[in-house]
Computed example of a mutant assay.
Amino acid sequence: MISKLNLEHILFLDIETVPETEHFNELSDTKKELWELKTRYQRKEEFNAEEFYDRAGIWAEFGKIVCISVGFFKNQGDVRQFRTTSFYGDEITILKDFKNLLETHYYDNRYLLCAHNGKEFDFPYIARRMIIHNISLPSKLNLFGKKPWEVPHLDTLELWKFGDYKTYTSLKLLTNVLGIPSPKDDIDGSEVRDVFYNEKDIDRIITYCEKDTIAVAQIFLRLRGDAILEEDEIIHV
């Protein structure tokens, strides 16, 4: 029962990703060919490989992480707080700083990671990018040999499905139906690439990523039957 979980033992998170290079023609010839083969089914006859490249951030083999935002509950007496912070910069620094957080503060079996669609996207994406950069996996992302009940991951999308595997519910839709303020009041995921490469506005991406992290925590509270966070309970650090 998620109502029995200690909120202070959960690290909520969200990531933002973009294509690994700004332009398709910056890829090596081999990588271009591999991209064409990888996306042939998704493109069908509508787009050629270059036209489809602005979506490359979805795949860890062709994208990179530009921001990881995290949030955690911290009670000060009777006062509930939700604190958020973000890792950004070059990808290796982001990954090493995030790994350091996990190994310093979220290392033992009490702690869990939580994201929306995290089991399909955020957690494996982070792990794959770490391996690509020869960064050893922290225990919270190293799932090799673990039984399903030993995996320290929560997923608000999976919790919302209640065993139904036929549907996908976006973060924006779920916040709407649950009466939670929308995190998509500025940009959405499809615009992150342009904001990063064209506008070069990482602060805007950080704000967006942190709002998504807050939204994940709000959804988790609603699934538990708890009151959602008020604005004065959210602290950016």
Rank of each mutant, 00 (worst) to 15 (best):
Y125W: 08
G163M: 04
E8C: 08
K4H: 13
L7G: 09
P152M: 06
H153S: 11
K64R: 13
E50Q: 11
R128A: 15
F121K: 04
D201R: 06
P148L: 04
Y168A: 12
H236V: 09
N176G: 15
H9Y: 14
N75H: 10
K32R: 12
L102V: 10
T84W: 05
K74Q: 09
N134L: 13
Q218C: 06
G71A: 03
A115Q: 04
K172M: 07
R110V: 04
P183Y: 05
C209M: 06
L143T: 15
T156L: 05
F162C: 15
F98Y: 14
L173I: 14
H116A: 12
E230I: 03
I132C: 10
L113A: 10
L113D: 06
R40V: 11
A127R: 13
R43K: 08
V79D: 00
Q42G: 00
A49L: 01
A115I: 05
R110L: 14
Y111F: 15
K211L: 08
T169A: 15
Q81Y: 05
L5R: 15
T84Y: 01
N176L: 09
G57E: 03
I206V: 14
V18A: 10
L95C: 12
H133I: 08
L11T: 06
L11E: 03
E230H: 10
P183C: 09
F47D: 02
D108A: 01
K147E: 10
G163W: 03
I235E: 00
F121S: 05
L13C: 12
G77Y: 01
K31T: 09
N100Q: 13
K31Q: 09
L157H: 12
W149L: 05
I132K: 15
K146V: 03
N6E: 15
I234Y: 05
I214Y: 04
A60F: 04
G118W: 00
D78W: 05
T17V: 14
K140R: 07
S86R: 07
L154H: 04
M1T: 11
L157W: 07
Q42N: 11
Y106R: 07
D97G: 02
K166P: 00
K74R: 05
T30V: 13
I180G: 12
A227V: 08
D232F: 02
I205G: 02
F72I: 05
V18S: 08
K96C: 11
P148D: 02
I58H: 02
L173K: 15
D97L: 12
N134M: 13
L159H: 07
K161E: 12
D201T: 02
L143S: 12
D97A: 13
F12C: 07
E120C: 08
R204I: 03
V177L: 13
G57L: 03
L143D: 09
R43G: 02
A115V: 02
Q76I: 13
L37H: 05
T39W: 02
T21I: 08
F123I: 05
K166G: 15
N100P: 00
E103A: 07
W160S: 15
K211Y: 03
